[in-house]
Amino acid sequence: MNPLLLIVEIAGEKVALRVDDIESVAELELLTPVPRSPAHVAGLSTLRSRVLTVIDCQCALGLGHSGQRQAGASAAIAVHDGHAYALLLDNVEDVAQALSDPTPAGARHGGNWEGMSHGIVETKEGPLLLLDVAALIEGIPETRAA
């Protein structure tokens, strides 16, 4: 049984996230910056009296700050290692069934797409890159060291 995918737009690209990795999709009520944190940590937000660490996926991909680093942005809520995160999205498109297992991604992507993904999956909307939520949260190695 192939997993359900959430099709979203990140850094202007249509990509997929595994629905199993995502708890919900929400609009951020507010965004409080975390001074001197790694660049891909956009700040803190809340959801039902829980503190969320907001991750700028575009930044984690090494493509500069997202234009969505503000209250009102759409985000995918994920729990990783006991901490709740909000992954900033440009847009939420659809939910679709994966039609294949992930296969290694080709070299056509710039940025850090490859390192942040599980590979390419087939969907009814064509092949999409399946992003790795855990890797996005960890950030690119450079940001992690900072």
Binding site: V34, P35, R36, S37, P38, H40, V41, L44, T46, S49, V51, T53, D81, G82, H83, Y85, I137, E138, G139, R144
Partner: peptide, 19 residues
């Protein structure tokens, strides 16, 4: 006070998050 995410703790400046 809840533990902050590892990336935030790694700054060494914060001990946790709270509402």
């Amino acid at each position: 006070v809840k533990p902050a995410a590892p990336a935030i703790i790694a700054t060494g400046l914060y001990a946790g998050t709270t509402l």
